[in-house]
Design a protein around this nucleic acid. Sequence first.
DNA 1: CGGATTTAACTTTTT
DNA 2: GTTAAATCCG
Length: 735
Amino acid sequence: MESLKDLNEMQKRAVEQINGPVLVLAGAGSGKTRVITYRIAHLKKNYGILPENVVAVTFTNKAAKEMKERVLSLTGSGQIHWISTFHSICAKVLRKHCQMLGFENNFVIYDSSDQLNMIKSIIEDLGVDERVLTPDNAQSYISSAKNQLKKPSDINEVFNDYFSEQLIRVYSVYQKRLRKNNAMDFDDLLMHAAELLKSNPDILNYYSEKWQYIMVDEYQDTNHAQYQLIRLLSSKHKNLCVVGDDDQSIYRWRGADITNILNFEKDFPDCLVVRLEQNYRSTKNILRAANSVIEKNLSRKGKSLWTENIEGEKIHHATLNSEVEEGLYICRKIKELCFNEKRRLNDFAIFYRTNAQSRVIEDMLRRENMPYDIFGGVRFYDRKEIKDLLAYMRVVLNPDDDLSFERIVNIPNRGIGEATLSKIKKIAERDSISLYKASEVFLKEGKLSLKTETSLSEFLKLICGFINLQQRISVSELTEKILEETRYAEEVIGKNKEEREGRIENLREFISAVEEFEKSPEETSLKAFLEQISLITAVDKYDENLERVTLMTLHNAKGLEFQVVFMCGMEEGLFPHFLSSNESLEVEEERRLCYVGMTRAKERLFLTNTYRRKIYGAERMNLSSRFLREISDEFIEVDRGWPEEQNSFDMKMEENSHRVWRPDATRGSDRSPDLSFSDKSDSFLRAGSKVLHPFFGKGTVLETKGTGENQKITVSFINVGVKKLSLKHANLEKI
DNA sequence: CGGATTTAACTTTTT
DNA sequence: GTTAAATCCG
């Protein structure tokens, strides 16, 4: 940074007021990251505040990383700043002080599926009737209780019946088991950190002395636990700057408390309130359209964004017949824009409300040979083989982790089945020790068959060997050792060829992730590795430099921006989602989500809906989304024809060896016949289409492969059975 | 006891 | 359409 000249008046005010509480109400695209990064640089450069005395909390690791880089380029110094997510900051604090709370510092972090597994087994063990409390329910109640810093004993305040009795039982056993396993879940990281600071004035004093300047990004999405943490930490110096936008609050369902931002002025009297209303991202059309939607919300502070950017194209709206056509429309539109406007694939993003919608779009992109990257959905670290491997690593780090122990004790198959396991569990209960230790006791007591004895002692030897090795070798070496000695690839992964290859590919990717991690200048221990990967999220790995179309849910889109945005599935029941269409508070949150999506677009915005859509097998006919109708007509234009067919695109290999798809400018474009959407007898056959063949008669399409001239089609004919045909020669007629 | 296959259930968003 | 549970079979 050379000066504050790059900032507008309002931004400058927010940066310069370094003392006391500051609330920055920052609209979408108004430069809030800029404010935070310049503020950090300003503190350092003009006031000599040391980096270690500043902490900035972000919502995702990606935002944190980006912020670190920007601060680094502003200040030119390589010192490490405390810029990271709530969860990782809490994890770091807890690693240091968790003994005060009765944990060992090698505690492991459970993700939500671990959480659910554990709750399931507790509900089973306690004999709780699933009609009263399902594991899903218990999980969400426990999570929200923790986010409100409520212990099991605090729950009676809310419920006072049989249900809450059961919930309290499950919750308290759950906490006991976590403690016994020396494990914490996501919510515990916040709750225990708050607990630690509240009950240990000297520790609180240490951190509030250390972090004299605190900044919080996306303040509208903080929950009560996070709010308390911030209050505690800032109580001494009160140099707290929060940045947020009530219109972009989309995590109420996860415990985010919008009153945190709405009441900030009351909580922190004498605060400076700065409003950033100039948008630097989008065209006038996009911004006004987004404003016309968000204005329908009643509970908002109210602000109106403006921009000096150009008018831009109108928003385009297209209604398609089916989700397949929707995907195809998007693909063709992307091709057309690549060709006519010389855009690159990484200019495009496709947003959807639910992960399930991504499949069809992916299929279409693959069919059209367009590279894409997808975020979210099944998380990489949620895959079976990865979780198995991680469970091994966790047990090596912390043998008391019963959940992971149970997962791997019989993977690969060692003949330690349910019968043996339940005996081990009994001993564990009797002596109140972990399963690992109970296994050792079991062996010593020697009341088991020779076969189980050898396999169990083999298993313990294996783990013990890893534990000893761990001191001497790197995490990647340990990973490979585990795979090798368990003969995981040979024993566990099925023989189905495609599946097998995919899984082995995943394991390779995992190893390269480990190697990547080891390159970092910070701590590279097993402990640090496991912590890092349990807190990493889908968006974190987004790389805007790859030439690929980006697919993600609207939630994941927050904080990002793209030249061209497609929002698909703009239908009642899907968006707003039918589970959020009853209460007006919920609809308002969906509307904010729509606003977030729209304001990601810089230049072009496309909205699509369909007449019919297959959702989990069943075909449904949805009305168009109310959000579509809320956009004033003056900003929107209805697309009635298919995009021009582009025949002149080629896959090319670039020097960086990334597969790059872009228009081949040496050839002209062929105009395809102008198909209107209502004319959907369409040239276009897909699985399920009914066809008529001149010789074979009536049939149903099973599958199509390839594109254009080379398209192959598999059809099941009523009279002659399944045939594979070349579309070009088959003379099929759609019926 | 373990593996493979079939059946049934359940469908939001995620740190 | 996917995944987990249930059932069957060796």
